[in-house]
Amino acid sequence: MKILDAVKQAFKNATNHCLGKCNICGRHTFFVCIDALAARNNMYCLFCRSSSRKRHVAKVLLNLFTPHLTAINDISRVGKYRIYNADVGDAFGKILNNYQLYVCSSFIPGITPGTEISSRVFCQNLENLNFSDKSFDIVITEDVFEHLKHHEKGFKEVHRILKTGGYHIFTVPCYFDRTTLVRVDTRGDKEIHLLPPEYHGDRIRGKILAYRTFGIDIFPLLTKIGFDTQVDFSNYLDRKSGIFDSYVFYSKKVD
């Protein structure tokens, strides 16, 4: 969304803005609403520009690893958790820019996967990561796995690079009352569209194809790989952190 359009939308939704404290940058702030019907993907913090969804990921991370802290901004004081985030240029990256145990990545066409683009910023393919086994305590992915051609391979790669007891904290679109909706058959050499193509916006590539919407069968799949998976659903109290209409998966590597 262009800046002028965002400003217009912010004025249009002014009654939906709210005050609170951001659990990423740690500042008291306004959470700015751009679209009330898709609050999880906006409600931007004025300072770090984190979205509701990203702050929900931060909430889960803090609860699991540093419940004595109130913001990601304070994690560098702990200095013992190695974090991999499959996103670049986001609020986590801005806040943890000087945290040496934080690395991030994106898949960038034309760049060889594994290339370090800048300090601790990589080009990576989630289906074939270049990191060593048991490298990280935390892996973060947000609305990524529905875009992987071979999602099971991606989950196995995350399992491989996590330390035992580490967590994959992630978001994906999911039906909790039915099985996965397969949009594209990827079992053969050619992709076969089973439904009209669905594309989601992407900062780097413009738009990317969604291969599936996950369903309740994601849980036995992750169990088979070696994860113990739970889901955190946002609640009324989360609104003080600007978290709305969201859910976050967290999978612990148990073997």
Score class of each variant (00 low, 15 high):
D74H: 14
N41W: 08
N42I: 00
I216N: 00
K149V: 05
F31W: 05
Y236H: 13
Q9M: 07
G201A: 13
A36L: 01
V254N: 12
N125I: 01
S106E: 14
F227C: 09
K190E: 00
S106Y: 03
G26C: 14
D177V: 07
I218M: 03
I111E: 07
G79W: 15
K224I: 00
K8A: 00
Y250W: 05
I95T: 10
F155A: 03
F30L: 11
N97H: 07
D245A: 13
E146T: 02
N42P: 01
T112P: 01
T179L: 03
I72K: 05
N13I: 01
F47H: 15
P109H: 05
S132D: 04
D74I: 13
T112N: 02
S241I: 06
D137L: 10
D133E: 15
I169R: 00
G89P: 12
S76L: 08
N125A: 04
C18K: 04
V172R: 00
R183H: 12
N73T: 03
M1H: 14
E127Y: 02
D137W: 07
V231L: 12
F107L: 15
Y81W: 13
T180I: 07
P113F: 02
N63K: 09
V231H: 12
F92Y: 07
N42V: 02
G206L: 10
S76E: 13
I108G: 14
S251Q: 11
H17A: 03
I243C: 07
T66L: 08
Q230I: 04
G242T: 08
I3F: 09
A91I: 11
H68Q: 10
V103S: 13
C25A: 12
I108T: 14
Y247F: 15
V32T: 07
G242A: 11
D35C: 12
I225C: 02
L222Y: 01
L195Y: 06
F31A: 09
E157I: 06
G89L: 15
L194E: 13
Y250E: 04
F31P: 01
L129E: 03
I111Q: 09
R183Q: 10
D87W: 05
C25F: 12
Y247K: 08
H17L: 10
F219A: 01
Y44K: 10
S106F: 13
H159W: 05
D143P: 00
D5Y: 06
D228V: 02
Q9H: 11
A210Q: 14
V139A: 10
K163V: 09
P173T: 08
N97V: 12
R160S: 12
K163E: 08
G20R: 04
G26N: 10
S106G: 12
K149E: 07
Y44T: 07
D185A: 04
K252G: 04
F170Q: 10
Y167P: 02
R77L: 14
S118G: 05
Q9A: 05
D5L: 03
E191I: 08
Q9I: 00
T66Q: 08
L96P: 10
K149Y: 06
F170H: 14
H28E: 09
R40L: 00
Y199I: 06
V182S: 06
S251R: 09
S246I: 00
S246K: 00
H150Q: 14
G89Y: 08
D202G: 09
L209A: 04
F65W: 06
T66Y: 15
S241K: 09
D177P: 12
K253T: 06
D5T: 11
Q9S: 15
N85R: 03
K253G: 02
Y99K: 05
E152L: 11
E198D: 03
R205S: 04
C174W: 08
V144I: 00
L129I: 13
